[in-house]
Structures are given as structure tokens and as C-alpha cells.
Amino acid sequence: MTDGSTPPADQMQQLQAQLAAALAEVAHLKEKLDAALDGTGICIWQGRPQSGDLTVFNYQNFEIGDMAPHFGLWLAKLHPHDKQAVLDNYYAHLAGKTPCYEAVYRTLTPDGSVCWLWDRGRVVERDDAGQPLRILGAHRDITLEKEHEAQLAMQARLDPLTGLANRRGLLDFLKSIDRRGGSYALAMVDVDHFKQFNDLHGHDIGDRVLIAIARSLSAPLSDYDLCGRWGGEEFLLVLGNADMAAANDVIVQLHQAVQRLTVSSGEQDLSTTVSIGLTVHQPGENFDEVLLRADRALLSAKRKGRNMVCRR
């Protein structure tokens, strides 16, 4: 071929064979990539920042309608609490300030449900002025992982016997009140002579008594309050926005409710009592100071004969 006309038949056949081989290799590579990604939940995506076009190449656990074909539509699905942090990461990478874009965020579906995503991308093409033309990345649905994390976090703050908040959960609650600058009353509750009770009736009965007391202490509390197991046979009650008079009314009622409790052991109905130390948070105090004063009030109740409420 010397004049720019149609190439000779043998050369055409050679080009067609090379094209067929290249297409076969592309199909083979795509097959291998699909096999590698299958079951991972990882979706490969491409974005064109100048036009806003978004393309997803494999859907894994997603449906086609789940994917936004344009940056503006994706932006509209972002959870409002996550949007700014995600955009800061994204635009920092487009500007060349970071080696990649990476974010963990929530998207909202039309029915209001939440989907958690892990998302990562990198600019793979820029124009002569350094402006991004194409960004390639991957994302994965991590909703189930987030739900599992939340369950573990909750379990880490719960007492397995009573189902109440444990010491860690109580401390987190008190710290959150301190950060907000809220006021509260604090009552420390101790089961009287519990070791002797356990030795006499057995630990199974002792556990049943603790469960019964936990229910009795927590049942009448409001959403602003928290009852938890501080440790062993000791409970802690946090009464939000309560002064001494209001807190005292609640605690006296709870003290009387525990006195009425009975737990069956064979043909015998067993009962027990509690000693309670009550105090109220003062402006400027941290929770450690309030805890110490409640503990001293509890010690006074024990020294005075137990089965009573002492206030400080």
C-alpha cells in the first residue's frame, strides 16, 4: 500500500487477527478481574470531575439504581453529618494535596434507610494545566460491619448479668453530662451483707437477687436518667436535671421498693435491703468529685446501721 488506499488483503487479515487477539485478551482480563472481585463487595468506579459523570463497572451486591450516574446525584445521597468531611477529602485529593481520596460515610436511600460505604479513589489522568480529568476508585458496602461494631460497642458498656450499663457505660454517661455542662443527682446503692447472703443461699440465688434489684431500680427512671451496675453488689443511679429534693423523692421510693422485693428459694421467700448514698452535682464540679461525695454518703449509711438513705 503506497497511495493511502485500502491495505492489501493479507495486511487486513493480520490487523483483524491482532484486533481479535486483543479483544480476547481484554475479555480474559475482565473475566479474571470479575472472578477476583466476586464476593468481595468491591465495586470499581470512574469519575470525570469536569463533567461530573460517574460510571460503575461492576455492581457486586448493588443494583443499577443504587448507583448515581452523576456527581450531583451522589452528593444528594450523602448523609448530612458526613457530607463536609467527605467533600474535604475528595477536593483535597483533586487539588493534589493528598496521594488518594478515602472516606467512610453514610448514604441515604429514598426510603430513609442508611447504607455505610468505604470509598477510595485516585486521579489517574490530568490535563496540561494539572486539572483532574479522570479519577478511578473502588467502594464497598460496610453496613453490616458497622452494625456489628455498634453491637459490640453496646455490649462493651452493658453488664451481662443485669443488662444494665456497666462501669464503663456509666462513666461514659457521666463524662457526656460533664461535657454538656449538665446538672444531675448521683445515688450509690449497695446491697446489705451480700457476701453473707451469697454464702448462705448460693450464688445462683444471689444473682437472682441482683437481677431483681436491678429491675426495681431501673424501671421507674426517665430517659434523662441511667441506672447501672457499678461493680459486684453496688449500683449507681444518675438522675438528670434533679435537685436534692426531687432526687430524694425518687431514691426514697426506690429504697422502699427494694424492701418489698422477694426472691423464691425452694419453699422460702428471701428478701434483702440496700444502703444508699445520695448527692447532687454542684456547678464547676467534675464527676469524680460527685462520685467521691456519693461514696462517702454511702459509707455513712453503712456505719449508721445500713438499710437507709444518707445525703451529702
Results as ranks from 00 to 15, higher is better:
V238F: 09
L239P: 06
P220M: 10
A165T: 11
S176P: 01
L144H: 15
V250M: 11
D172S: 00
R140W: 09
A156C: 04
L217H: 06
S176E: 05
D249S: 07
V189Y: 07
H193D: 10
A245D: 14
L237N: 01
D172L: 06
G182D: 08
K146A: 02
L161D: 10
H193N: 12
P160C: 04
G228I: 01
G137V: 13
A212S: 14
L217S: 09
N241F: 03
H148A: 13
V209R: 08
V209G: 03
F235A: 04
R168N: 14
D204C: 15
Q155F: 07
D128V: 06
L171C: 08
P132C: 11
R229H: 03
Q131T: 06
Q155A: 15
G232K: 05
R126S: 06
I251Y: 02
V189K: 02
D192R: 10
Q196Y: 13
L161I: 08
D178N: 13
G169A: 12
H193Y: 11
D172I: 08
W230N: 07
E149M: 15
D141K: 05
L221H: 04
R134L: 14
P220I: 11
E125N: 00
G163C: 11
I142D: 02
D207Q: 02
W230P: 03
L186S: 00
D204T: 15
H139C: 03
L136P: 09
A246Q: 15
H203T: 13
E147A: 12
L210I: 14
Q131W: 09
F197I: 01
T143I: 02
G206K: 04
T143F: 05
D159F: 05
N248V: 12
A247K: 07
V123W: 01
H139P: 07
A242I: 06
V250W: 01
D159A: 01
M154I: 14
L174W: 09
V123E: 01
Y184S: 02
S176K: 11
L158A: 12
H201W: 15
V189A: 08
